[in-house]
Computed example of a mutant assay.
Amino acid sequence: MAPVQLVTEDGLRVDDQELAPLVADIDTRRLLDLYEDLVVVRRIDSEATALQRQGELGLWAPLLGQEAAQVGSARALAEDDFVFASYREHGVAYCRGVDPTHMLRFWRGSTHSGWDPLQYRMTTPAIIVGCQALHATGYAMGAQLEGAAAATITYFGDGATSQGDISEAFGFAASFQAAVVFFCQNNQWAISEPVSLQTKVTIAERGRGFGIPSVRVDGNDVLAVLAATRAALAGAREGNGPMLIEAVTYRMGPHTTSDDPTRYRNSALDEEWKLKDPLDRIKKLLEREGVLDDTYLARVQAQADATAAELRRGCLETVEPTAMSLFDHVYADPHPLVDDERRQFETYLASFEGPTR
């Protein structure tokens, strides 16, 4: 089944009877705001990638090509909803209000985390593939027992669906009707393995196998993603249980900056997906509607460049951690095990100092 669209690659509107009414409130001004989000998020990603290439970050997980999947879903969230992220949701973090400079702390090795999850209602990067789906399901079940009306959403890639954690999360969520939205960014590649090796049916169909209602949308169409996520979140809040969204998109760059996609991916496939670029699509739509002008485009670019400059400044001005800061903030309160490990590490470091004269 082809993914549902509301905007074609050429910027033409699609009048889908189910999804279109869910974004009827997105007028010209809000569409322009979404386009700005897309541009700024791409600029954050390109600047962070450059910082890693220049040795300022240990690693970075680029999101190039996946901006619409992240912005569209994030802008559907209510303030009280909670996000359980993987390691690539920089666009979601931006939309949740996270300071872009804080996104780099984890990748620079400056802190264990990067921001306060409770402040932004969003977890920091989860490196263990698929674990966040279990965390989200457990959180949603707990919130449900407390009578909370907020929904939970968790993000993962197509490769993560081969992990047992995802299947277990699906099983628990379906059995207990947890108010969780599973958002799969199917970017076609689990590092070097294509999605065709991960599953012989669509990922949406795999969700239905667990009894979870599922929808397959064009992940490069910000309006379709926004509409589908709004519907899923509303259902979760109303007590209808979980839902799976498969956003069909494409990772234009490497899996992380330690990866070389040219070793396993045909460049012709990249060229094919460039024609489906999420930013170009909305720009074409706005051009068709006659609302783009040079002043607006210059303002958006200036905003993106200013954000990138602040990102770079914040990265370069980061106070590097000391070796002993590794033990800070492991627990909220003092813990004897951590205290013992701290003393052992101090002794270990002292062994390199040598005898004094």
Rank of each mutant, 00 (worst) to 15 (best):
A2Q: 14
V4N: 06
V7A: 10
V7F: 11
E9V: 13
D15G: 04
D16R: 06
Q17K: 14
P21R: 04
V23S: 00
R30C: 05
R30D: 09
L31D: 00
L31H: 05
L32V: 07
L34Q: 03
L34V: 02
L38R: 02
V39E: 02
R42C: 01
S46G: 09
T49W: 15
Q54A: 14
G55I: 07
E56D: 12
A61Y: 12
L64V: 14
E67G: 02
A68L: 11
V71H: 08
S73L: 05
A74I: 02
A76W: 01
A78W: 13
A78Y: 10
D80Y: 09
S86Q: 07
V92T: 11
C95W: 02
D99R: 12
D99V: 09
M103K: 02
L118I: 14
Q119G: 08
Y120Q: 06
M122D: 07
M122E: 08
T123V: 10
T124P: 05
I127P: 01
I127F: 10
I128T: 12
A133H: 02
L134R: 03
A140M: 03
Q144L: 06
E146P: 02
E146K: 14
A149I: 09
A151I: 00
A151V: 08
A151E: 03
T152F: 02
T154A: 06
G157W: 06
D158R: 05
T161G: 04
S162E: 11
D165R: 11
A169F: 06
G171S: 15
S175I: 12
A178H: 00
A179F: 03
C184W: 00
N186T: 08
N187W: 00
A190H: 01
Q198G: 09
Q198F: 11
T202Y: 07
I203C: 03
A204L: 07
G207K: 00
V217G: 03
D218N: 14
G219P: 04
D221S: 04
L226G: 01
G235S: 06
G235A: 05
A236I: 07
E238R: 15
N240F: 12
M243A: 15
A247L: 05
M252T: 08
P254G: 15
P261V: 05
T262I: 10
R263S: 12
R265G: 07
N266C: 12
S267V: 15
A268V: 13
L269C: 06
E271G: 07
E271Q: 13
E271P: 08
E272H: 10
L279I: 15
I282Y: 05
K283D: 13
K283M: 11
G290H: 05
T295Q: 13
Y296L: 15
L297F: 11
A298I: 10
A302F: 08
A304N: 01
A304W: 01
D305W: 01
A308K: 04
A309R: 09
L311A: 11
E317I: 03
V319H: 10
Y331W: 04
A332N: 09
D333R: 13
P336F: 04
E341Q: 14
R343P: 01
Q344H: 15
G354Y: 07
P355Q: 11
T356E: 15
